[in-house]
Write a protein that binds this DNA or RNA. Structure first.
Lengths: 361, 361
DNA sequence: CTGAAAGCGCTAACAT
DNA sequence: ATGTTAGCGCTTTCAG
């Protein structure tokens, strides 16, 4: 299989030039006579030399050409959510242009994956970072790997310096303005005349559960998008009658939560789900219970996904620019790799009315 | 940012040992006195040495610890399909155990991504490989990268040696027995009394289109799962009245195809879709047209996905072991990397009756 | 059990 | 325009 593959030195010898010249023939990064280059390439062809070994290049250049992407969950779950996918697609687009590859790093809660600790990467993109004490972030910081955090937090201003920052590691943050987004959404519902709200929430933290939230949990810890979106609801002056926490942003969890809420006596007139997948589950639950949306109950989501199978209903929601978020993260990663600093990015969201909200009966 | 990070040599110097000894302290691959090791680790801690630089290790060992996964499409599309995701999840599981990372390589049709040509990887997993002339496979083979092909073909027996094989590259193949799966499914429908079939097909090849297939296309080229599943239908002795090709395995395309078929005068009594996503689109189309499933039309799929939002319908389908396929591919990749040879794997599928099929009216 | 030496394959100053 | 030299950071014989 590997009876000493040819190296650049072999090619150079055969072409009768020095290794450095042969190197130039491939990289084009320097002056070289066309005839010489052709001679080198011919020699390479004869030896079936497949081009410079990336491992050698990487060590020499001190760069791997790889950005690690850390998911806060199993791929199976992360990727069932179009939200992650579209983001990843945007990320791949940007990084692809720069010939940078994406190393997938699934991270079960509470553990630091071996890849985080040992894989070669020029930068890392961390999703759903929990907070400044996140072990993954700490490990990456210790390794001196530059990070861009999506929808996360590397330590608020009150902490002074963040974990990573204090270690002198360059970081960047990309997120959306979800707080203002939900506030706007809820205000619209209020304007329609709704006064009694139910909320189907994203997970609060690693201990994912289905049901009413644990009242003893620390409200200052847990997943940031969840906290921000709940804060947005409060900003609109609404105190929900009932909140159901779900273990993941999946249709079936939305359905369960929806049934839980809607089968109570005298249920709320409006249900705000913190993601579109959850919201569509609530719509399905309503259908199952024989309730009409929006006549009997209004349902709203968050994300702005395209959900053709929910037809004829079209969710009222808050659209976030998912692919753009990924692209921005990619840009930030490239910038960090090149040693530039990057301002934090907060992308705007947009209220997007659909057919699932109306005045209460 | 990078004012000369400490190296193993620095650590060794500070601990008063040689680099080789320091190396042993980290790798544990050799005899070393406990006290010496502690001294080295202490020195490392003092210098904030984050452990051996993977780039150095990789060059020295000749291994990157990375397996590239080549998708035949944009991530956005590949990953909207749970079929790819569950496979990837199984793959990640197996590779993760061996501390091998997954490098994501999206590949637009007709181009060879830079990562395929230049990224460091110990092996590659290629999805939806088109056939022995696939450029991606050829490039990987030229680079001497071992490959495991999923649902693909590296050159049938009739071609003699495959592209890769002829170049002396070790390869492996993992796929499901989809031909026999669809045959079984269609025979069940025949047993119910159906005689007039419509087929909603997966894409035939890179030129993805929606509509009746181009009659001039070469039937021996194109995506293999599509060809095998169509062959299974023929095996059951059925010649469909109408076949609609779709550009991708997505609900909306199934819906379009379903409307196309079902709004004809005197439509077929059974529609076989070559994937569950397509089939569920057909179910939605039937609902829209006011047709009852399975009373007015039977619909069957392929894959065995869990589709809660299709409730109350449950697809009649053929279940394939998706995560297991990924795990097998992972095992194969590891084996190839370790220089072992791997027998081809054909995983069995299982007929799985649901509520969407019944005798014709 | 530890150290010295060699070299993985490549690139980039620098000198010619 | 080409060659010479010096490593990038690490692991691994091979002696001691």
């Amino acid at each position: 299989m590997n009876p000493s593959r040819p190296t650049l030195a072999d090619v150079a010898r055969r072409a009768g030039v020095s290794v450095s010249t042969a190197s130039l023939a491939f990289s084009g990064a320097g002056p070289i006579a066309a005839t010489t280059r052709d001679r080198v390439l011919a020699a390479a062809a004869e030896l079936a030399y497949p081009g410079p070994n990336p491992l050698g290049q990487q060590l020499r250049r001190g760069r791997s050409g790889i950005v690690g992407v850390v998911f806060g969950d199993r791929l199976r779950r992360s990727f069932r959510d179009p939200v992650s996918i579209q983001m990843l697609d945007g990320l791949a687009q940007t990084l692809g242009v720069h010939d940078v590859g994406i190393l997938l790093i699934p991270s079960e809660a509470g553990e630091v994956p071996a890849l985080v600790a040992h894989a070669a990467m020029d930068a890392a993109v961390v999703l759903l970072c929990n907070g400044p004490d996140d072990e993954v972030v700490a490990t990456l910081a210790r390794r001196g790997i530059r990070m861009v955090v999506i929808e996360g937090d590397l330590g608020g201003p009150e902490e002074g310096a963040s974990v990573a920052g204090s270690a002198g590691i360059a970081t960047a943050s990309v997120r959306i303005d979800d707080r203002r987004g939900t506030e706007r959404l809820v205000r619209e519902l209020c304007a329609l005349g709704h006064e009694r709200f139910g909320v189907v929430s994203l997970p609060f933290g690693h201990d994912r559960r289905l049901g009413e939230p644990d009242p003893t949990r620390d409200p200052r810890s847990g997943y940031l998008p969840t906290r921000r979106r709940l804060a947005g609801i409060a900003d609109a002056g609404v105190a929900p009658e009932i909140v159901i926490e779900t273990p993941a942003s999946l249709v079936e969890h939305g359905r369960s939560a929806g049934i839980e809420i809607l089968s109570r006596p005298n249920p709320p007139t409006a249900i705000v789900a913190l993601s579109d997948l959850l919201a569509s589950g609530v719509v399905l639950a309503a259908r199952e219970l024989g309730l009409r949306v929006p006549d009997d109950v209004s349902v709203a989501g968050f994300d702005g996904l395209d959900l053709p199978w929910l037809a004829p209903d079209v969710l009222t929601t808050v659209r976030q620019p998912l692919a753009e978020k990924g692209r921005q993260a990619g840009q930030a990663a490239i910038a960090l790799i090149e040693g530039r600093t990057v301002p934090d990015v907060v992308l705007p969201v947009e209220y997007q009315p659909g057919t699932t909200t109306a005045p209460p009966r």
